Simulated scan of single mutants.
Amino acid sequence: MGAAGSRARQNAMRSGVVVLGAVAFGYLSFRVGFKPYLDQAQEAMGSSHDSRSAAAPGDAPDDPGADRPGGDPAPSKDPAVVLRD
């Protein structure tokens, strides 16, 4: 029974390594395949963030929730903010 248990453990370890390798390969394939789109999205998010921070304090705020009591902003449609909340 000791040899059968050892063989089963080896097979389980081998299967785990194969699964982890497949997941890593899939992740890298996704990153390489969608790299142009990911770069464009990151650039667009960075430029929108820079334009918001570049506004002068005396300017009229672009934030639609700035006139709300307590200054609470309106709910955001940004997925990162939705997931964080």
Score class of each variant (00 low, 15 high):
A4H: 04
G5C: 09
S6K: 13
A8L: 13
R9K: 12
R9M: 04
Q10E: 11
N11V: 06
N11T: 06
A12L: 09
G16N: 09
G16A: 08
G16E: 08
V17D: 10
V17L: 06
V18T: 09
G21E: 04
A22Y: 01
A22K: 06
A24R: 00
F25P: 02
G26K: 05
G26E: 03
Y27N: 02
L28W: 00
L28N: 05
S29H: 04
S29V: 06
F30D: 06
F30N: 04
R31D: 05
R31K: 06
V32Q: 12
V32N: 11
V32E: 12
G33C: 10
F34M: 10
K35E: 04
K35W: 10
Y37G: 05
L38Y: 01
D39T: 01
Q40I: 04
Q42A: 14
Q42M: 10
E43A: 08
A44W: 11
M45T: 00
M45E: 14
S47R: 14
D50G: 05
S51M: 09
R52Y: 12
R52P: 01
A54D: 13
A54N: 13
A55K: 15
A56G: 09
A56K: 12
A56C: 00
A56N: 08
G58N: 13
G58P: 00
G58V: 03
D59Y: 09
D59W: 11
D59K: 12
A60R: 11
P61Q: 13
D67T: 15
D67K: 14
R68L: 07
P69E: 15
P69A: 13
G70D: 09
G71N: 06
P73N: 14
P75A: 06
D78N: 14
D78Y: 02
D78A: 09
P79S: 10
P79E: 12
V82C: 00
V82L: 15
R84M: 08
R84I: 00
D85M: 12
